[in-house]
């Protein structure tokens, strides 16, 4: 059947729209961003004369390179937080809820907050966490505290609480999915052969849900590393992430400098994804 083979074009034309899209909106902007990061920036103007000045500024001024460390620190805290809270929820929904209907209902409940706009979700935390917010009122009425807690809003704590809530669902979803696909008999077989709860978790649940864990980690990582709105809103601009640096620099038309921050952020995200994918080859799964 030589007709099925055809020439190169007939075999590969289906790749054209996708490739064109990727080149136009991913590869080209990336090259452009790297290029612009070496342009010369003055207070009022930007010229395509190549220089490393913006790069030097980024790594010499604490306000900028500390944004890099802040980003990595906040990413790790939020990642751990979403996993500590999300994995038990996933285990409950995926393993302990037998009925498919109840499973779906619980998953939908976990996703419902996601149906509101991103900004609404962030802003909604303000009346929750503020000095006279819901949380403080509840704690005071319950006589757990006598004075309102002031570290909840416009602090890093508030920002992290907000981020964990917003991104939790990205862990719960994929991990639940992977866990619910495990044949309950496989877990019983392990028990039958003498494995206790800890061994079952380590030998059976962890490896079998690894693609879900990695998918969740990639979702959370990509989203948190690129964050700028939540810190701006809930930390009261006290915490600066790379995303915030980019927004500020673009706002004041410092394109070269914004590009440097952009390149750094892109490299960080790429490294994180490569690292996570080394844990499991997602293409082999499913």
């Amino acid at each position: 059947m030589s007709g099925q083979r055809g020439n190169w074009f007939t075999r590969h034309w289906q790749l054209i729209p996708g490739s064109a899209w990727m080149i136009l909106f991913l590869i080209a902007p990336l090259i452009m961003m790297i290029y612009v990061s070496f342009w010369t920036q003055t207070s009022f103007d930007i010229k395509p004369d190549l220089t490393t000045k913006s790069w030097q500024t980024f790594f010499s001024q604490p306000v900028y390179y500390s944004a890099l460390w802040n980003t990595i620190r906040v990413w790790l805290i939020v990642l751990v937080g979403t996993f500590v809270l999300g994995v038990p929820v996933a285990i409950f929904i995926g393993l302990f809820v037998r009925s498919n209907t109840v499973q779906t209902i619980l998953l939908v409940l976990a996703v419902i907050p996601f149906w509101t706009s991103f900004l609404v979700r962030i802003v909604a935390w303000k009346p929750m966490l503020g000095q006279n917010g819901a949380l403080n009122i509840i704690l005071m009425k319950a006589h757990i505290i006598s004075e309102p807690l002031s570290f909840l809003l416009y602090t890093e704590v508030g920002m992290i609480i907000g981020m964990i809530q917003i991104y939790l669902v990205f862990v719960v979803g994929p991990v639940t999915f992977m866990l619910s696909r495990i044949d309950p008999n496989v877990i019983e077989a392990a028990r039958d052969l003498g494995a206790g709860t800890g061994r079952i978790f380590k030998d059976i649940l962890l490896p079998l849900s690894r693609p879900g864990l990695v998918t969740g980690a990639i979702f959370v990582s990509v989203l948190v590393l690129g964050e700028f709105a939540t810190p701006a809103s809930l930390s009261g601009r006290k915490v600066n992430l790379l995303g915030n640096v980019i927004v500020t620099q673009v706002g004041s038309l410092k394109w070269a400098f914004a590009s440097v921050a952009g390149v750094v952020l892109t490299v960080v995200i790429a490294l994180v994804i490569v690292g996570l994918l080394r844990i499991t080859d997602l293409r082999k799964e499913v």
Binding site: N185, V186, A190, D192, L193, G194, A195, R199, P207, L208
Partner: peptide, 25 residues
């Protein structure tokens, strides 16, 4: 020892690892 209808083999282990699992535990 229980033999399940679905066999319930550990999908992430090879034949030997499956068989030796009970002994390793």
């Amino acid at each position: 020892s229980m033999i399940f209808q679905s066999y319930a083999l550990f999908p992430h282990m090879n034949v030997r690892e499956n068989i030796e699992y009970g002994l390793r535990v």
